[in-house]
């Protein structure tokens, strides 16, 4: 009886369709709502209006408008992933090994979980309410007087008169950092906690100071995790749409915004070019995720030590 049951469960011999049958509903769902939509775009990217194969749609790379949207997206994502990555690393550094007071570490780890998931439209609202033209901080700053270069008091100080503008790429970077650095804290903390105490003791015994320990031991060990986490941040920013749309009303041309406008009304004047634009995004995201997974594997190897 038991042997028979075991056979029913383990059933080594029954390869082929029988291993698939239980996954059929799931695969059907994925095929319908993920694979088919993707294929529609991908095949469209390589077809002209009459359905013939062409690479001409990728000439959007010569269309300064579309190319610029890619460059803006890449620039914003790169900047926020670097700022968020570096800042997040230091925050994670502060919260591990009881370097900062315990209550601070507790607050920071709780809020990292919250802020990493706080995005979209509400995040844009929060920044507009705080740093927008009539925002809370802007209003506070307007009430503060300070001495200008010529010694005369400038009062009130309106940051918008001094080159600051929230509704721009700079404002977008400021807002994205709100979820980027907490995501860095969440992804890099396990790696920092995985640094063995023995390593710093051993390097101290060999006569190195703290700077040398970080330069020759800790950072090289952490490098794959740092790179991987930063790449994850890049992808996180690259695919974002809602915050940018709500913050700038679509006046900053990210690829996602561009695709959004293409869906609404074919701004590129060629539907297939829109597909090519979307295809390019998927390529960049795939590269990002593959790199991240490879680096993550490398990290997992020494974390297990």
């Amino acid at each position: 009886m038991i042997a028979g049951q075991n056979k029913r469960i383990h059933g080594k011999g029954q390869a082929g369709w029988k291993t698939w049958i239980g996954l059929l509903p799931f695969f059907l769902f994925i095929t319908f709502f993920l694979v088919m939509p993707s294929l529609t775009l991908f095949s469209g990217a390589f077809q002209d209006a009459e359905g013939r194969f062409t690479l001409a749609n990728f000439s959007f790379l010569e269309n300064t408008f579309a190319l610029k949207s890619y460059l803006t997206s890449i620039w914003v994502s790169l900047t926020t992933s670097l700022i968020g990555g570096i800042f997040g690393f230091f925050v994670a550094y502060a919260t591990t090994s009881s370097r900062a007071p315990r209550w601070m570490s507790n607050i920071l780890s709780t809020f990292s979980g919250l802020a990493a998931n706080f995005g979209g439209v509400p995040l844009a609202f929060a920044f507009i309410a705080t740093l927008g033209r009539t925002g809370f901080i802007t209003a506070l700053l307007k009430g503060v007087c300070f001495n200008g270069a010529d010694g005369a008091a400038i009062c009130p100080f309106n940051p918008y008169d001094h080159g600051f503008n929230l509704y721009s790429a700079a404002g977008l970077i400021l807002a994205y950092t709100y979820f980027q650095f907490p995501l860095m804290v969440l992804t890099i903390t396990p790696a920092l906690e995985g640094l063995k105490k023995e390593w710093s003791e051993a390097s101290a015994n060999l006569g190195s100071n703290s700077a040398q320990y970080w330069r020759y031991v800790a950072l090289p060990v952490l490098l794959p995790s740092l790179l991987g986490a930063t790449i994850l941040l890049f992808g996180n920013a690259f695919g974002a749409y809602a915050t940018a749309q709500a913050l700038t009303g679509g006046s900053i041309y990210l690829v996602t915004i561009m695709i959004g406008q293409q869906i609404r009304g074919d701004v590129l004047g060629n539907p297939n070019e829109g597909y090519a634009l979307a295809f390019g995004m998927v390529i960049i995201m795939s590269l990002t995720i593959v790199l991240y997974i490879l680096l993550q594997r490398k990290t997992a190897r020494w974390l297990k030590l």
Binding site: F87, F90, V91, Y93, A94, T95, S97, S98, R99, A100, P101, M104, S105, I107, L108, F111, A115, F125, A126, F127, A129, T130, L131, G135, F136, I137, T177, Y178, F181, V185
Partner: peptide, 25 residues
């Protein structure tokens, strides 16, 4: 271990980044 002043600096900065927009909003 004594608390590291740099760690406190980064922790305070992060808390400001978390709380100022929230409080302002």
């Amino acid at each position: 271990k004594k608390n590291n002043p740099w760690a406190i600096f980064w922790a305070v900065l992060a808390m400001l980044y978390f709380f100022v927009p929230m409080l302002g909003t």
